[in-house]
Design a protein around this nucleic acid. Sequence first.
DNA 1: CTGATATCTGGACGACGTAAACATATCTTG
DNA 2: CAAGATATGTTTACGTCGTCCAGATATCAG
Lengths: 208, 208
Amino acid sequence: MRDSHAAEARPYHHGDLRRALIDAARRILEAEGPSALSLRAVAREAGVSPAAPYHHFKDKAELLDAVAAEGWEMLDAAMARAKEQAEPRDKLTALGIAYVCFARENPALYRVMYDAARDKEALPEQMHASEDSAFCKVRDTMIEQGADPESAVELELATTAAWCAAHGLAEMAGFKQFEHLKETLGGEVPFLRAVFGHMGLFPGVRRD
Amino acid sequence: MRDSHAAEARPYHHGDLRRALIDAARRILEAEGPSALSLRAVAREAGVSPAAPYHHFKDKAELLDAVAAEGWEMLDAAMARAKEQAEPRDKLTALGIAYVCFARENPALYRVMYDAARDKEALPEQMHASEDSAFCKVRDTMIEQGADPESAVELELATTAAWCAAHGLAEMAGFKQFEHLKETLGGEVPFLRAVFGHMGLFPGVRRD
DNA sequence: CTGATATCTGGACGACGTAAACATATCTTG
DNA sequence: CAAGATATGTTTACGTCGTCCAGATATCAG
């Protein structure tokens, strides 16, 4: 059976329990929400004993970190796709819309992602550090749409502002208070565009 | 002892356990953070048995709701104070700064406030409904600073955008990634002003 | 004073996170 | 290939949690 361990590392007893646990966690998260996401429930869903996860994660927080990391990757991919498909002068808005839509379509996952970030008091490395991180994607898009690439501080401030706007909107968009506005404007996405427009951040949708 | 129950309602055994429980919860929250805020710990802190709170709150969530409600009142008061003290053309920015500063000075309480809101998928009534709610304060200030009071939808969109911006910034401002920016700009408040400025929401600090 | 009612205690239950002791499968090395 | 080392899993156990229930006791209404 040399073929089954050809990859590079872990197929022992279960095959790849680490992977299975993360998947189980995601399944529970989607089906029953964050409050049902206990370590024991994850182990149950994966068909192992309650203590088994401790051979793959230091504690519950580390499992959630792994789930969150995959969430950030998904968000990053969604934003990349959105930027690609949008017309040049609409790319920044498209990034913002993609961000909020991801959060709205995966509310439980988004919550886990930010809970982990708040506990660490930092966004994950992958979102802010690397060359093609989502954060850099926003910055680069700002340059493409006319921001001055020389003034680094201004550029980082603008990117930060955009990120704050997207996160704030992602959390607010689910509140009942704004349903009336969504109806008036004809749907969720028009509502998002309108709010982003009022932020004055996104040249593509700037009014007047 | 007729004097001790003169007020209007509740002094039975303990005096006013409901009040004492909320205070105990706030003390624990400030001293040990949200993760230490268990119902049993609150009862312990208040000097009663673990089951006693159930005569004043349906469950743990209802206690947290009460704590959150007081948090919103404090936030409202802080914003009112800020608006009062600011110069006319700086009032909107002052509201935003006050909002974020409150969240930064009471991170555990702010978290409880928004966790409760997320669970209910709504901001608390008190923040959005009444005449002098914080939300209306922002809207009114926008009018005072030149927004058109006739276009109700535009006005509500702008207010929503401002609220999203403040919340987003409140959550981001604690992340390590932005400490560098804070230093460059000479402190937290200048950082907040700069980000708000880049939002283009607050005429008082609009650049150029 | 007497019952009704509001408030608190004590004990119990099941679920949780986690640790320790043990069992077994796989890897490594001689 | 034999044999220890190591990685992976189970069982059992502990303390904490939210919550409920059965009393006890204090206050109130008549």
